[in-house]
Design a protein around this nucleic acid. Structure first.
Length: 273
DNA sequence: TTCCAGGCGTATC
DNA sequence: GATACGCATGGA
């Protein structure tokens, strides 16, 4: 288990199992990654950019990355200290879960910045992925990197019209104000009960049950959080009418990632045939 | 043209 | 507390 890494020139070479770039970076949990060729993604976490390329089976290159950057940013972001082989083994307690884990075995739950994730999922509501990515790209371009709550709360919705975020502009401003003032505290959200954390997030205008759940799972690594969208609704209706199996307890959100991917591909194949 | 996209706020009952 | 409807924008 685990991973290894070493510096090679200006880059970091990473040896890591259970890691697929498409399944992890292009699956709707993060919106700043762009596929630049068959094996390479370019993106960022907050203000740290990265180009990462798959160079071989379980081998990746992180371009222009120091050991310090790798240890302080990317090791955590890609959740490298978590043993996904062990997780998949644990949650493969019935045929459906086993198939889902086997189908997209390289999914990892990213440990994204809390603010960046909250902001991104506010933008995601009633929206499609290309547009979500466009709005976030314009946001980062305007501020030079992902804006802090302090930077954003100085703006009015009109001044953010360049984002073309529509009715969501006022929502991200309200979020920035509540985070900046401490009315919403990520430190609290990470340690509070899940229900208290949900309630606190939903004091933000434009944050309902779905966005709160996504922020908790993708931005605070609250692995019990379980966002239910149309795909997961289908999963539950057709495969788990009585809820997820007990082996998923505590990591329902990670199980959700595997099931989401499995159902989407399953459904598109049904459509083709 | 109309519909829809990883929803939410508001009005109404 | 349940249900319908509008909402900005842009691609299909």
């Amino acid at each position: 288990m685990g991973y290894e890494y070493y510096a090679k020139g200006k880059d970091i070479v990473l040896l890591c199992e259970d890691f697929d770039l498409d399944e992890t970076l292009d699956c709707g949990q993060a919106f700043r990654w762009e596929k630049v060729d068959e094996s390479t993604y370019k993106g960022a976490s907050l203000n740290t950019p990265l180009t990462i390329k798959k160079e071989g089976e379980n081998t990746f290159r992180l371009f222009d990355t120091t050991k310090e950057q790798f240890l302080s940013v990317w090791k955590n972001y890609f959740d490298l200290d978590t043993d996904y082989a062990d997780i998949k083994k644990r949650i493969s307690c019935d045929e459906t879960m086993a198939k889902a884990c086997n189908f997209a075995g390289g999914i990892r739950l990213l440990r994204q910045d809390s603010w960046e994730a909250l902001c991104s999922f506010i933008i995601s509501q009633n929206n499609n992925i290309p547009r979500i990515k466009g709005i976030i790209a314009r946001l980062c371009e305007h501020f030079g990197s992902f804006p802090t709550p302090k930077q954003l709360c100085a703006y009015t919705p009109d001044e953010l019209s360049f984002l073309r975020a529509g009715f969501r502009a006022k929502y991200i401003i309200d979020a920035s104000r509540k985070v900046e003032s401490g009315e919403v505290s990520f430190e609290r959200l990470r340690t509070a009960t899940l229900d208290d954390a949900r309630k606190e997030l939903m004091t933000i205008t434009g944050v309902g049950p779905k966005v709160a759940e996504c922020a908790l799972l993708y931005g605070m690594y609250r692995t019990q959080a379980f966002p239910v969208d149309v795909w997961i609704k289908r999963v539950m209706e057709s495969w788990y009418p009585n809820g997820l199996p007990a082996c998923c307890e505590g990591i329902e959100g990670i199980a959700q990632q595997f099931l989401f991917h499995y159902m989407r591909t399953f459904a598109s194949k049904e459509k083709d045939s």
